[in-house]
């Protein structure tokens, strides 16, 4: 997921959000080596050189990671370009990317052995080390808890709770609220296991059954840390999309009631309120 020493290239650096967050990430200490934009009139943003192609970012600045702010309709091309250029990790912040585009991106990323996080996600943060994303860093104090979340703002809320009232954050991984994401809950757990993190908070949503699958996967892999979960969307009616394209209950298994009772039967801690999330 992240080793903390990534050489980051910002795709879509000249846009409003790309520019704003490049400045914030730099200030946080993230090693941003360059940006890429199709707008060739801009040569520099906040001291970061702006290039025309991902290929140059890899060749000239040895970028190994990219963070994508490119608008949805151009995102597939941007990510494809990055994959062919040899970027190995791609964090897609952009929301509203068509699902068929994401299916293509995901299948290409598997073929080329590239790690994708997102889309429609806040990114990843290791408090006090690096931030590749858009989260308000104030809510993330360094500590020993891993957060996995499909939701962005809810992740901020939970991080704030864990920073103020518990032992702080080791890493927070925003998976994104779309039905097709490059990294799912199981893969996030693989990273947490590899890094030996012993406390995990999983923030879930209606729709799909990734949360249950992911926790089962972690336990099968021998994860012996503590897992706490919080689900938003108990009041979500069936068949209605609740903001996130992925947050739609289609059938019993997607409902929060089902997910919560299933996890409880597995002996997993399910919190009623965010303020109950304390280790």
């Amino acid at each position: 997921m992240t080793e903390g020493n990534e050489k980051v290239c910002v795709q879509g650096i000249t846009g409003k959000y790309g520019k704003f967050h490049t400045e914030k990430m730099l200030k946080y200490g993230t090693n941003i080596v360059c940006g890429v934009s199709k707008n060739s009139s801009v040569k520099e943003i906040a001291g970061v050189p702006v290039l025309n192609s991902a290929e140059d970012a890899v060749k000239i600045y040895k970028a190994d990671t990219s963070v994508v702010f490119v608008p949805a309709r151009f995102a597939k091309d941007a990510v494809t370009e990055a994959i062919y250029a040899g970027i190995k990790k791609i964090i897609i912040i952009t929301e509203h990317i068509p699902i068929h585009d994401m299916i293509e991106i995901y299948s290409l990323s598997k073929e080329k052995n590239v790690k994708i996080i997102g889309p429609n996600c806040p990114g990843i943060i290791i408090p006090s080390v690096l931030k590749i994303g858009i989260m308000p860093e104030k809510a993330f104090k360094p500590g020993d808890i891993a957060i996995i979340s499909k939701s962005g703002t809810l992740m901020y809320e939970v991080a704030n709770q864990l920073s103020v009232n518990s032992s702080g954050i080791k890493i927070a991984i925003g998976l994104g609220g779309d039905p097709v994401t490059g990294t799912n809950v199981s893969e996030a757990f693989d990273y947490i296991i590899k890094k030996g993190i012993k406390k995990t908070v999983l923030i879930g949503e209606p729709g799909g059954n990734e949360e249950i699958k992911g926790i089962k996967h972690a336990i099968d892999k021998g994860y012996d840390g503590k897992i706490k979960t919080f689900f938003a969307g108990k009041t979500a009616p069936e068949g209605k999309t609740m903001g996130h394209a992925g947050a739609i209950v289609e059938g019993r298994e997607g409902s929060i009631a089902y997910k919560e009772s299933y996890l409880k039967s597995m002996g997993i801690d399910v919190s009623e309120k965010i303020s109950d999330l304390v280790f």
Binding site: S151, G152, L154, T235, M242, G243, H244, A247
Partner: peptide, 15 residues
């Protein structure tokens, strides 16, 4: 602002 926080707020009202 944000789907997750809206759902969490709805749930809290319901609770």
């Amino acid at each position: 602002c944000g789907a997750g926080i809206v759902m969490a707020t709805m749930d809290a009202v319901k609770n």
